[in-house]
């Protein structure tokens, strides 16, 4: 089996969870990784300070799309004020695959978009590096 493109990564890439649009929504953000053309947006519905529903949408490499799908299952139910405290290491650990420096931003794009939607901070988690 491939180290990076494990079965569950390819499964999330081919059948992404929580993907599409969500209307109406309370929060949204859209961003891209200009280096490789990965694009990702999110619509979020909030109740009692928690994320109750979200949908990612966009296009990109398997790592960026699978990472968004895998992380989406963690984001649902999370208190909004916790999202800003998540860092890149949390996400990389969640993915469970060796992410090289050149693919790091692919993996982190969904967290960048989530932080943009919930805190307005559009910078890369951990500087993206």
């Amino acid at each position: 089996m491939d180290d990076l493109y494990r079965d569950y990564i390819l499964d999330h890439y081919k059948r992404p969870r929580n993907f599409g649009e969500l209307e109406p929504h309370d929060l949204e953000a859209h961003d891209h990784n200009p280096l490789c053309g990965d694009e990702l947006g999110v619509h979020i519905r909030v109740a009692d300070g928690k994320i109750v529903e979200l949908r990612f949408h966009g296009q990109g490499c398997a790592i960026s799309q699978a990472a968004a799908s895998i992380a989406s299952e963690e984001y649902v139910g999370m208190p909004l004020d916790e999202v800003g405290g998540l860092d890149g290491e949390w996400l990389i650990e969640l993915l469970g695959i060796p992410i090289s420096a050149t693919r790091r931003r692919c993996a982190l794009l969904n967290l960048k978009v989530m932080r943009g939607a919930t805190t307005g901070d559009a910078s890369w988690p951990n500087g993206g590096g």
């Binding site: 493109y5 200009p34 490789c36 053309g37 490499c61 398997a62």
Partner: peptide, 26 residues
């Protein structure tokens, strides 16, 4: 079915160096 970025990553396992992206021509 495979994004160019993944294509470049996968062929690199065979030491094949190709480029993926917008090639500075967005």
């Amino acid at each position: 079915g495979i994004h160019p970025h993944d294509v470049a990553d996968l062929v690199n396992r065979e030491n094949v160096c190709i480029r993926a992206g917008h090639h500075c021509a967005m």
